[in-house]
Write a protein that binds this DNA or RNA. Structure first.
Lengths: 216, 216
DNA sequence: ACAAATCCGTTGCCGTTGCAACACAAAATA
DNA sequence: TATTTTGTGTTGCAACGGCAACGGATTTGT
């Protein structure tokens, strides 16, 4: 386990080596690996834990009755998932799937709910709350994207959100075309079609998950 | 100010009268009223406070460059808005609008970020975090609705979410038809059209904001 | 009570998008 | 290398939905 890199986590940002060790122990952290395609958090888990991604990509998703797939969240290294359910002690109709081989840290949420015995514990509680707040803002942005009326506008909104407003710069997205379609709540082939129209129009260019944003 | 009713808030649930008074004082609570149509939280506010709705309805919304209106959240009595921004000390591109005459409690978030001096303060911190977690789940549900591919499916998803799964029961929605359309990210007239198709098909009946859900 | 504003359904038009099916390329596997 | 699996673009078609414009009903305000 590379404790160095943990300072990049919103949860552990800026902590010293010893503090991180203490924090991991408070959370009863356990490292787990899953192979690509594995299901991590299942539908019925009433979880007392949440997860931190060390490497790889995880999708939090669900499927409706008609078999439609939806992606609730894309979790990249140093970010977490399952915190809300963990904190509330609930289960829900979502599951997490490893989109690549992943290594995770399983963290027990108990220490978040007891009065803090140390300043470190209090700090972690603060960080946890801040993470939830950030997640809310993140989901707000997602909702703004999904509310756009056309695929084109969804793409533009997503690009400005992911690629920053910087013009002419390249950026990559953490999913393939099918994943992108699920994320935007549109049909994959229709997305493909619209992306090519944008390329023909000179707005963007792309190859695989690498995109170029030509001008405003 | 009716302190009685505050026990219905997720934030103050189950607290005694004295505790609620203490809590309000910790939050430096101030009651404010706004008239229908007024803007409460503006785009540029770097807020140190969040708001609790005592009566009336507030919409948290934003408009994009093309002038499209979007509703991020509908806030009904005893619920709050602006907590995420408050906790993070950020401002954002959303604003809050009073959809009816409203009375609010303005709450200062400072006490949420300091080590708790009392068990009450700790409890409030816990409640606040739980509120954020619930909000995340709520937004997850919203995302699931928005990801549906057709207006009809969005309506169904919204009904099952708002009206419970109970069959044959009535429920009301906290917005008018235009608000509902914004909430679902669709055109108002198209929504109207689809609602009438559903009524013709015998799936639902409705009048104003009151809806009947006929069978599963 | 009257005027103004708001809310809601209706309709025609046509571009957009979902859907299914297929072809091809690249990558993974044996 | 041969074979399978996965990822991506393409296309035809029909239905859906966005848009604009309108009219009637209800509500609000004076």
């Amino acid at each position: 386990m590379k404790k160095q890199q943990l300072t990049e986590c919103p949860l552990f940002y800026g902590l010293g080596e010893h503090e991180i060790e203490d924090a991991l122990s408070l959370f009863s952290a356990t490292q787990i690996s899953y192979e690509k395609g594995a299901h991590i958090m299942t539908l019925s888990d009433k979880s007392t834990q949440f997860w931190l991604v060390l490497s790889g990509t995880v999708h939090v998703c669900c499927d409706d009755e008609e078999g439609h797939h939806m992606i609730m969240a894309v979790v990249t290294p140093f970010h977490t998932f399952g915190e809300s359910l963990c904190y509330l002690g609930l289960h829900s109709g979502v599951y997490a799937e490893a989109k690549t081989n992943v290594t995770l840290l399983s963290l027990d949420g108990s220490i978040l709910r007891e009065p803090p015995h140390s300043s470190l514990q209090f700090l972690l509680q603060q960080r946890f709350t801040a993470m939830l707040a950030r997640k809310a803002l993140e989901m707000n942005a997602r909702i703004q994207i999904l509310c756009k009326r056309s695929i084109r506008d969804k793409i533009f909104a997503m690009f400005t959100h992911y690629g920053g407003q910087s013009n002419g710069r390249a950026f990559s997205l953490p999913f393939d075309r099918a994943g992108m379609a699920f994320y935007l709540g549109v049909d994959r082939s229709a997305l493909s079609r619209e992306l090519c129209r944008l390329e023909d129009g000179g707005y963007i260019s792309f190859s695989k998950n690498e995109f170029y944003w030509h001008f405003h």
